[in-house]
Amino acid sequence: MAGLEVSIGSLRLRNPVLLASGCVGYGEEIAQFVDLSALGGIVVKGLYMSPRIGNPPPRIWETPSGMLNSIGLQGIGIHRFVRERLPALRQGGATVIVNVCGETDEEYEQVTRVCDEADGIHATELNISCPNIQENGRCPGMSQEHTYSLISRVRKASSKPLIVKLSPNVTDVAAIATSAEQGGADAVSLINTVLGMSIDTETGETRTATGMGGLSGPAIRPIAVRMVYQVSHAVRIPVIGIGGICDARDAIEFFMAGASAVQVGTANFMNPVASMEVLAGIKSYLARKGKKLNEIIGTCQIGRVQESEPG
């Protein structure tokens, strides 16, 4: 459909609705409900070089309008993904983006290299929120310097579009985004989960086995919209909005804040066809307003009071 395409570096997405990493595995289960080729793309669950067993249960806890998770990046490793899971995604016509993880900068580079060489992987999304073993568990995405040096290094390992997924657990997300852009990112996506914790007051134990967890869902949407707004004013590269998107109106909020595309994550847990509903709703909104997607991006006005439409 005309007017819905989005460019991320050299990659042309069919439309601006993607499935978010960590919320759709490697796509095979959700493909029962969703035609992946009809979406803008799928960002598969974060992958390291080697398989990871993940964290012990309990791993999830529902919170007001959201959920905490502490999955621990359980995964099959990039090689098994390319061998065993990528073929089905290719056959289904999906635009595949791999979320790249690393315990060291070297590992990020290695995984990116594998992605660069694999046919059927269209782009990578660098998860700079992974605990780094050379930095006492600090994530690269917590400092401008580390973000810049990591992305500069990874940039040289791949000719495919490189998206950098930003963490909200920082003081100045726009500064990190700027470092990502300077390092050579083609786009930034945000936000990853917000660190949180919940405690069972009967037992005194935390609700997830590892103590902290990542908060996702509608509860974090206003934080995400605010950060997308800030980042889109700080960088020239496209911004992909993520955070509690459940319907088209939520997605349009992100476009107006400055996002060129969006990812649907936790909503897939409540509704397997949420992404299709978001896409259909965007189309009808644009038709109703007589506008193209790029005509609403970044159009939000600060300080102008308007009456909202009924309903």
Partner: peptide, 12 residues
């Protein structure tokens, strides 16, 4: 469980 159909890996 969160999703019930295999994608969240929360119910292990």
């Amino acid at each position: 469980m969160a999703c019930g159909y295999g994608i969240c890996i929360g119910c292990v």
